[in-house]
Amino acid sequence: MFAFLKTWKALQARGIMGINRRNADYVLKYNDRRLYPGVDDKITTKERALAAGIHVPDLYGVISTEKQISRLGAFIDARDGFVIKPAQGAGGDGILVITDRFEDHYRTVSGSLLSRADLEHQISSILTGLYSLGGHRDRALIEYRVKPDPIFRAISYEGVPDIRIIVLMGYPVMAMLRLPTRQSGGKANLHQGAIGVGVDLATGITLQGTWLNKIIRKHPDTTHAVDGVQLPDWAGFMALAASCYELCGLGYIGVDLVLDEEKGPLILELNARPGLNIQIANDCGLAHRTEAVERHLAELAQNGASENAEERVRFTQSLFGHVGP
């Protein structure tokens, strides 16, 4: 009991945010429920981003009824690689990544071969709502498969590494690089076994990593060091993340971005309830940073001022950046 109290105090001193705190003080406070469909539905997010001129992976097609499954060929026949996703999926579930073809089969990112019937069954499952948040009917979207920048080859196992940035009222407060592992099956979700690596907000250089709530410095599959890697086009990532506030209107979000070798930084999806493992990856609590942003916002409100995305990025980079590796 006493030990727990001690841990409690230590966590609080370091500004570690718990789920209850995140829900009560940030998610419920800054995220208006009416705006959730905008981020929960990836098709809506994509349409809005395109309208605002923000870079997202190309949309090949949307399937919303069983009948439309027969139109799958029209979307994928000319393409080797593509991704099938549930529009309202949660936690990366139900996503199928096809890298190329073999005969009349499709090769997934993990190397297994699927027939056309398998793809259609997957889409059918998506439509019935198997992967959607509330279990209700969903739509499937087929989109461009991101080809990860070669920089990640050494520290990633299959799949596409992505960058998660927590954004509070348009201020990016913490960033993390998520690296798929053999265990995560090519997916970049931490609870599935992917590695989270903290990223310095100012420079874009990676810090230590977290894997299954433990602190690590090497990728378990490639054994390359995950820290000290300079992410290319970091300014582009930060600008994209900061602009997401205007895009969706939600005050506290996790922005998932990828770096495509041809198209540069792209927004993959937005998350209205971003996870908390990013704190372990950065070896830093979220609460101190979010509180600092809230104080800054209160100051601005007093002066009747507001900042644009560029100024917001500069503010957080000056305050939270340049962390020693």
Partner: peptide, 15 residues
């Protein structure tokens, strides 16, 4: 707003 008991274990890496 406090921590959950499981979080005290989850974030043990920090302490």
């Amino acid at each position: 707003r406090g921590y959950r008991l499981s979080e005290l274990i989850r974030f043990k890496a920090f302490t």
